[in-house]
């Protein structure tokens, strides 16, 4: 394969052997050669053995090791709960990286997060003022409503209730890429969608972020930016091992909070929960 892709504002070329088949959701982001200026190139190939990583170890998690040398990163990428690594990502030039894949693990590349992790996309996008929010991304009346919460809180459940009772449409069941389009914060598609299986590459201006909390009744309150910051900070992908990147992301969250309303919805699984939030969203107009 030798194709261009566009995720958010980031346009890149992927060159990889035919045995490597990007997942269907990733292919939603393939674009034509005339899409715009290519910003980055990834060269991917298969190998029996992954190369040795060089440099200073700056992040050490069970599923990821990050090394830094001369301002460039090398990452050994694995899967949580499994031994070893399936890929080695190495930045080889300012706008180029090579990704060596373990031949033994090529079958697992059809899983969205396994494949998408090969590109250090969060790093590329952060430098373009974009960030990934853990949320169910719902389109309602031409705008994005983003249900955010830790896993198992009920993001998909609330998104489904909105679809059932208000005719909304889920664009991504687990993630949205946030960035400014024409001066307005917008939600964009993302090639990973968790267990929801719902993944579209579509962009809508953001109406509100809704932080969910399970409760016995339904109530909604608009949060001040100061109260909303810790809640969003915990649900946004941040490379904390890179201090400059980390601080930039915090500034970006602050900028988002200055412009986008954030609600705390304490809710049950009911139409009343939908009505409760709808009233607050309508009041924004």
């Amino acid at each position: 394969m030798n194709r261009k892709f566009q995720i958010g504002d980031f346009i890149f070329r992927l060159r990889c052997p035919e045995e490597v088949m990007p997942p269907d959701n990733f292919m939603l982001f393939a674009c034509g050669e005339d899409a715009g200026e290519q910003m980055y190139t990834y060269d991917m190939w298969l190998s029996e053995k992954l190369p040795d990583a060089e440099g200073k170890l700056i992040a050490d998690r069970p599923d990821l090791k990050v090394y830094e040398k001369g301002g460039r990163e090398t990452r050994l990428i694995g899967v949580k709960g499994m031994d070893g690594y399936y890929a080695c990502y190495q930045e080889t030039a300012e706008e180029r990286a090579r990704v060596v894949l373990s031949e033994a693990e090529v079958q697992s590349l059809h899983f969205d997060p396994v494949f998408t992790s090969l590109f250090a996309l969060e790093k590329r996008l952060a430098s373009r003022d974009q960030m990934v929010l853990h949320c169910a991304y719902v389109e309602w009346k031409g705008e994005a409503v983003l249900f955010s919460a830790p896993s198992e809180t009920g993001k998909t459940t609330q998104a489904d209730l909105w679809e059932k009772y208000r005719g909304s449409r889920t664009i991504n069941g687990d993630r949205a890429l946030l960035g400014k389009r024409n001066g307005r914060w917008s939600a964009q598609g993302w090639p990973v969608c968790g267990t929801s299986g719902v993944c579209f590459n579509e962009t809508f201006p953001v109406r509100a972020v809704v932080v969910l909390s399970q409760a016995r009744g339904n109530s909604v309150q608009r949060l001040t930016p100061g109260k909303a910051f810790p809640l969003l900070y915990s649900q946004i992908t941040i490379n904390k091992w890179n201090m400059a990147n980390h601080i930039h992301m915090m500034d970006l969250i602050e900028e988002l909070l200055a412009e986008i309303p954030v609600f705390l919805l304490q809710c049950t699984i009911s139409e009343n929960a939908v009505s409760c939030l709808e009233g607050a969203l309508d009041a924004l107009r």
Binding site: P225, G226, K227, F229, K240, W241, M243, H246, I247, M250
Partner: peptide, 19 residues
């Protein structure tokens, strides 16, 4: 440890090796 003032609320955030 980085301090941030957000509309009157103050948070302290560990960065780099402090995490």
């Amino acid at each position: 440890y980085v301090i941030k003032d957000i509309a009157g609320e103050t948070v302290i955030v560990p960065t780099g090796n402090a995490i």
